[in-house]
Write a protein that binds this DNA or RNA. Structure first.
Length: 518
DNA sequence: ATTAGGG
DNA sequence: CCCTAAT
C-alpha cells in the first residue's frame, strides 16, 4: 500500500505541472485593445505555427492530442475488466475524460467545416477569428477544451507582451501566464513567484487524497441498502427565512439612520474603537437589519461591516438565546466583528478597514489563497482586486460575484467527471485547491447552473439578440454537452461511494489513468 | 461538516 | 450568491 502510494507520488511529480488547467488565452469584446491585438496575432500565429511546431510545441501538441488514445485504451481495458459485477464509479468517470478529449479533438472537430470551426471557436473563446487554417482552428479549440496548456499560444502571448520569454518552459505554468497575459509588466512578479508553492501544495493534496481514496476503497465493501436516493429528492420544510434579502432601497435609508440609532443606544464602546478603525456604517445594513428582526429589540449594530457572516451568524444565533436584551448582544457582536477583522482578514470584511492599518496581510492572503486573479481576460472585472473593495458607495455587495472562468468551469466539469456530482468537497479540495474562493457550495451551484444550461440549450439561436450573454462567459457547447452527458451518466450510476471493491490492478489503473492528466 | 434545494 | 434544512 505504502509503496504503491510512493510510486504514484513520484509518478505524479515526474509528470510536471500538476495544474493541468487550460491556458487558452481568452479575449473578448470587452477589452477592445487586447481584442484587436489578439486578432492581429491570430493571423500572425497562423504563419508562425510551422516554425514552432518544429521545435517546441510539436511534442507538447502531440502529447495533448495524440497521447490520449493510449490512455483511453488502457482505461477502457481496466474498466471492462472490472465493471462486470460491482461497478467502479471511479473507473467509469475517469475514462470519460480522455474519451471526451478524443471526441472533441478528433471526431467532432475533424468533421466540422471551417465555418463550423469558426463558430465553435467563437463559442469556446468568446471571440471571432479570421484564421482560415482548419488545423490551427482545430488545435486551438481542442486546446481550449482539453485543458492542455502546453501550446504555442502561451509562448506567443508572452512574446507579444514583451514579457520575459517563458516560452522555454515546456511545462507551462498556466496561472503565471494568465496573470501576465492580463497584467503584463508590473508587479506580477510577486504572484508568479508564489505559484510554485501552490503547485506543490496541489501535488501534496492530490497525492494524499489519493491515498485516502485508496484506503477507503479497500475498506468499504459493497453496500447497497440505501438505493432509493436519486429518485426522491430530499424533502425539506418550506424554508423560512429570517429576513428577506435586503433591497438597495432599504439600505440607502438605513445608511443614514444607523448612525443615529447607534448613538441613541449609547454604545459607548464604539467610540473607543473608532480611533483604531474608521467607522463604516454604510455597510452594516445587512447585519443590522438581520439583528433587528432577530432580536426584535431594534438594535442596530454598526461596525459589523459585512463580516463573513458564517461565523458571526452562529454567534448571533447563540447569543440570541442568552441575550434577549439587544445591547449586551450588540456589544458582544462588536467584539466578535473586531476579532474577525484581526484574525481573519478577508475581502468582505477587510477591505477598507484593513487598508487603514496595513497591507501585509493582503500579501499573505494572496499567497495562501493563490488567487489567480483575472485569469480570464474575457471576464475581467474592474474591481476584481480584493483590496479594491467598493469603498464609498453604500452598496456592499455580497461576495463580489466572481465570474466563472471557462477554465474554472472546465475544472469543475472535470472534477465532476472524476469524483461524481455531489462530492463537492472533494472536488473543491482537489480540482479547486488553488482557488480559495469557490466554496464547495459554489461548485454545486455552478454545476446546477451548468446543468440547466446544458439541458436548455436546445434553441441555439432564437431571438433575443446577442446582447446579454456576452457579459458572462459563453460556455462552449461541447462543454455543455459533456455536462449533460455526465449528468445522465451519473443519474444512472449514482456515485454511491464504496462502489469499488477493486482488485489491486484495477485500483492502480484508475490512479495511473488519472495521473495521466496531471 | 457537508450536501441538497429554494430564493 | 445566500440561506436554511437535512444528514
Amino acid at each position: 500500500m505504502l509503496t504503491k502510494a510512493k510510486q504514484e507520488e513520484s509518478h505524479l511529480l515526474a509528470c510536471g505541472s500538476p495544474d493541468h488547467s487550460s491556458t487558452y488565452v481568452l479575449v473578448d469584446g470587452q477589452c477592445s485593445d487586447q481584442h484587436d491585438t489578439l486578432r492581429g496575432i491570430d493571423e500572425k500565429l497562423q504563419s508562425e505555427i510551422p516554425l514552432q511546431e518544429s521545435d517546441l510545441s510539436s511534442q507538447s501538441l502531440s502529447k495533448s492530442l495524440n497521447n490520449q488514445p493510449s490512455i483511453h485504451g488502457e482505461c477502457s481495458n481496466s474498466s471492462n475488466g472490472l465493471v462486470e459485477g460491482q461497478r467502479s464509479t471511479s473507473a467509469v468517470y475517469t475514462s470519460s475524460k480522455p474519451e471526451f478529449s478524443r471526441l472533441m479533438g478528433e471526431i467532432c472537430l475533424d468533421n466540422l467545416s471551417i465555418k463550423e470551426l469558426h463558430e465553435t471557436f467563437k463559442a469556446t473563446f468568446g471571440r471571432e477569428t479570421t484564421v482560415k487554417d482548419k488545423q490551427w482552428l482545430k488545435r486551438r479549440i481542442a486546446m481550449g477544451l482539453t485543458n492542455s496548456c502546453d501550446v504555442s499560444t502561451s509562448s506567443f502571448i508572452i512574446k507579444d507582451n514583451k514579457l520575459v520569454s517563458k516560452g522555454g518552459e515546456g511545462s507551462c505554468n498556466k496561472e503565471a501566464i494568465e496573470d501576465q497575459a492580463v497584467k503584463p509588466v508590473d508587479g506580477s512578479g510577486k504572484e508568479s513567484s508564489l505559484n510554485p508553492g501552490s503547485k506543490m501544495e496541489d501535488q501534496q493534496i492530490v497525492s494524499s487524497e489519493r491515498l485516502r481514496t485508496c484506503s477507503k476503497d479497500y475498506s468499504c465493501a459493497d453496500e447497497d441498502p440505501l438505493k432509493e436516493q436519486r429518485n426522491a429528492k430530499r424533502i425539506r420544510k418550506p424554508t423560512r427565512r429570517y429576513i428577506e434579502e435586503l433591497s438597495e432601497v432599504e439600505s440607502k435609508e438605513h445608511g443614514g439612520k444607523s448612525i443615529a440609532s447607534v448613538k441613541n443606544l449609547g454604545l459607548g464602546l464604539m467610540s473607543s474603537r473608532s480611533n483604531t478603525r474608521p467607522v463604516r456604517i454604510a455597510s452594516s445594513n445587512r447585519i443590522t437589519l438581520r439583528l433587528d428582526s432577530l432580536g426584535g429589540s431594534g438594535v442596530q449594530i454598526p461596525y459589523v461591516s459585512r463580516v463573513r457572516r458564517s461565523r458571526p451568524r452562529k454567534n448571533v444565533k447563540a447569543l440570541m438565546e442568552f441575550h434577549p436584551n439587544g445591547i449586551g448582544m450588540a456589544a458582544k457582536l462588536v467584539k466578535e466583528a473586531v476579532d474577525v477583522h484581526s484574525s481573519e482578514p478577508n475581502r468582505e470584511s477587510g477591505g477598507i478597514v484593513l487598508k487603514a492599518s496595513s497591507a501585509p496581510e493582503q500579501i499573505q492572503q494572496q499567497g495562501q489563497n493563490m488567487e489567480p486573479k483575472n485569469k480570464d481576460p474575457s471576464v475581467y472585472t474592474p474591481d476584481d482586486n480584493p483590496a479594491t473593495v467598493r469603498a464609498v458607495k453604500g452598496g456592499v455587495r455580497r461576495k463580489h460575484h466572481r465570474a466563472w472562468t471557462l477554465s474554472e468551469v472546465m475544472k469543475l466539469v472535470e472534477g465532476v467527471s472524476k469524483y461524481g456530482a455531489g462530492r463537492w468537497s472533494e472536488i473543491k479540495r482537489l480540482a479547486f485547491a488553488s482557488y480559495s474562493y469557490r466554496t464547495s457550495v459554489d461548485l454545486k451551484d455552478k454545476w446546477r447552473n451548468l446543468l440547466k444550461a446544458s439541458l436548455a440549450q436546445t434553441p441555439p439561436d432564437s431571438r433575443m439578440g446577442a446582447r446579454k450573454h456576452a457579459s458572462s462567459v459563453p460556455i462552449p457547447m461541447p462543454v455543455l454537452l459533456r455536462v449533460r452527458e455526465l449528468a445522465e451518466m451519473q443519474s444512472q450510476f449514482p456515485p454511491n461511494l464504496s462502489s469499488s471493491k477493486l482488485t489491486g490492478s484495477a485500483g492502480r489503473n484508475v490512479n495511473e489513468t488519472r495521473s495521466g492528466y496531471l
